[in-house]
Design a protein around this nucleic acid. Structure first.
Lengths: 206, 206
DNA sequence: TTGCGTATTAATAGACCTATTAAATAGTAT
DNA sequence: ATACTATTTAATAGGTCTATTAATACGCAA
């Protein structure tokens, strides 16, 4: 058995599985291939994780949580509302940048594999409506003070989510403009980050 | 053989294939299942289309073209720039609404099945940069006239694309708010349509 | 060393999938 | 009817996949 790290076999399997699932999706990734990457027998994948589905759930459980809630987390800092929001949008973008292949994977499973999706998101639980309500309160205060226009919290969050997530789901399109240069691609992503923030902040103007 | 329409078998296969591909993705759809839906022998799928890949390409060839270029088509009407743009965003949204499952299917294939993606998009050809350049000219004129802020055409198109497409890729999220009511879901989509237009038009303000 | 639990392997059952082949049937023109 | 073509079917080769089973190697405590 050849291991890439000095990790346990179990960890190696999870790492290989994560990379392959992100690259090729759930359906196109086989336990045999995961084992091949790790350099172990395919039986071990089932020995440690019992089933492919279970492996998937264990690998992405935490990532899914942070993916779902990263936009909703309340920042601790006591900054003016608009600065806090700008930071929040940027943080969300940055989180996506280090998990750039996660959105398409998750949304594809949700759309095409309802069964798996239900099992996965059962653990994640329901949307924390209280947090959205909290943001709504903040927005209402800003509105009363004439700082922003009347704004629906859920709609605002979905707009932020759309712009940020689509940057990475649509990355093949952006790559057409990057001409295979990693530097150009990074520059384009930076532009998108700034543009997404600008678009949202602009939309709040009274 | 049971046919749902008085179409030819070939058409029935294409229709069933389209529905199944959109529902379950390429990898999870089998030619056997397509045949089962049509009510014919699985061999017929290969008789008419030679391979699953070929069937996929034939089924989606036209839809892919319109998906790629719908945002780029130049409207014939001679309206003021801003009205033309508003219409364009709305038209793009409406096109997506009647093909709501197409975006996740296509982006998933592009991300997870480079091979198929290359074959598909070879036919679609390259981005018509000339059209983007044409939009840039219009934007520059508007800017000179002080009607809008300095705006990059490609960035603007990507923002519109992001907001509109993500409405449908992210529809499972929106559904959480619709509480299984078709009417509520339609209302939410209408809100998103208006909100996407508002966001983009707002972003152009000088 | 023996014994025992853990880790690993080979072998394989049982499904399902794509694609091909050869044969049967339906349809149509002569 | 006959012959020819188009359509449809059954059978199956050949592949891959998930998961299980039984056997082997390893590590370590007694």
């Amino acid at each position: 058995m050849i291991r890439t790290q000095n990790n346990t076999t179990e960890q190696c399997i999870m790492e290989a599985a994560e990379a392959l699932f992100l690259d090729k999706g759930y359906a196109r990734t086989s336990t045999i291939e995961i084992a091949r990457v790790v350099g172990c027998n395919q039986t071990l994948v089932h020995y440690y994780f019992r089933s492919k589905e279970n492996l998937f759930k264990q690998v992405f459980e935490n990532k899914i949580k942070s993916f779902c809630f990263s936009l909703l987390e309340i920042s601790e800092e006591d900054l003016p509302f608009k600065e806090k929001l700008e930071k929040r949008i940027g943080n969300h973008f940055d989180m996506l940048k280090v998990n750039s292949k996660l959105p398409i994977l998750l949304f594809n499973e949700v759309h095409t594999n309802q069964d798996l999706a239900r099992k996965i998101f059962a653990d994640v639980g329901h949307l924390p409506l209280s947090i959205i309500a909290h943001l709504q309160l903040e927005l209402d205060v800003e509105y009363e003070n004439g700082c922003i226009c009347k704004t629906d919290a859920a709609a605002l969050l979905f707009s932020i989510f759309s712009l940020n997530v689509m940057t990475f789901i649509g990355s093949p399109l952006l790559r057409l403009f990057a001409e295979n240069s990693k530097e150009k691609m990074d520059a384009i992503l930076e532009q998108r980050r700034a543009e997404n923030i600008r678009l949202i902040m602009n939309s709040l103007n009274p």
